[in-house]
Amino acid sequence: MKKYLAVIVILIITSFMFIIGIDFVFGAPANSDMDDYFIEHGQEQIATNNIVTTVVFDYRGFDTLGESTVLFTAVIGVAMMFRKLGEGD
C-alpha cells in the first residue's frame, strides 16, 4: 500500500513538472520592468560594466551583507565546535 502511494505521488509530481515545462516559455518574464531598469541605468548610476555585480553589491547590497554574515556565523560555529573538541589551541 505504501509503495503504491509513493508511486502515485511521484507520478503526480512528474506530470506537474512536465506541464510546467511544456507551458512555460523560459527567458520571457511577464514583468520585466525591474530588469529593464537595472540594465538601462546600471552603467550610468553605478559606473560598472558588470550588471550582475551591480545588482549583487549595490542594488541588493543589503542581501550580500546578510550573506557574508551567514558565512561568518558558520565559520564561528565550526571554530567553536572543534575548539572544544581539541581542548585549547
Binding site: 552603467q43 550610468e44 553605478i46 559606473a47 560598472t48 560594466n49 558588470n50 555585480t53 551591480t54 553589491f57 549595490d58 547590497g61 550580500t64
Partner: peptide, 22 residues
C-alpha cells in the same frame, strides 16, 4: 571613473565602492 554606456571592454578604475566590497 565613469563608464561609456553600451558594450565596451571596461576599465579597472571604475565602479565606485564595488571593488572595495569585492
Amino acid at each position: 571613473m565613469s563608464v561609456i554606456p553600451g558594450p565596451n571592454p571596461g576599465e579597472l578604475n571604475t565602479a565606485g565602492f564595488l571593488p572595495l566590497m569585492n
